[in-house]
């Protein structure tokens, strides 16, 4: 039983670390601000989730586990808020995303006149 928990914990910790590294690599490779938001959400969901889950399996049913669950829930609640605020601020600052396909018909919600992006 102990052995199985250890192996699972190893697996989740390594998966989380791998997703963190992949996300950082993506952050370095992506061409513009809006595409860079996506690797960051990989880090903040899968990387964080994997590492916290790995720690959770080591902690067992203790106070430490409760704190870990609180940390995971807080990150999952606050990360999209920060990401959305960042994207909105970048759009309002006039930085237009590099697009392959624009399906909005030039209309962005929240703007009155259509903009040609």
């Amino acid at each position: 039983m102990e052995m199985v928990l250890d192996i699972l914990s190893w697996f989740f910790l390594l998966a989380g670390s791998a997703f963190c590294l992949i996300g950082a690599l993506g952050l370095l490779r992506m061409p513009d601000v809006y595409t860079r938001l996506h690797p960051v959400s990989v880090i903040e969901t899968l990387g964080m989730g994997g590492i916290i889950l790995g720690l959770l399996l080591q902690a067992g049913f203790t106070l430490v586990a409760a704190k870990l669950i609180i940390i995971a829930a807080l990150i999952l609640l606050t990360a999209p808020v920060a990401t959305h605020a960042l994207a909105q601020a970048a759009l309002h600052a006039g930085i237009l995303p590099k697009l392959d396909h624009d399906k909005t018909g030039g209309h962005i919600a929240g703007e009155d006149e259509p903009s040609n992006s």
Binding site: H38, S41, L76, P80, H84, A87, L91, P97, A109, G110
Partner: peptide, 25 residues
């Protein structure tokens, strides 16, 4: 909107009434 943003690959950029502008990778 939060579910869209939380899912990697899509980010909600702008929100007005019932219309969400989404940036997808």
């Amino acid at each position: 909107a939060n579910s869209i943003t939380l899912t990697p690959g899509t980010v909600s950029v702008e929100l007005e009434d019932d219309e969400i502008t989404v940036h997808a990778i």
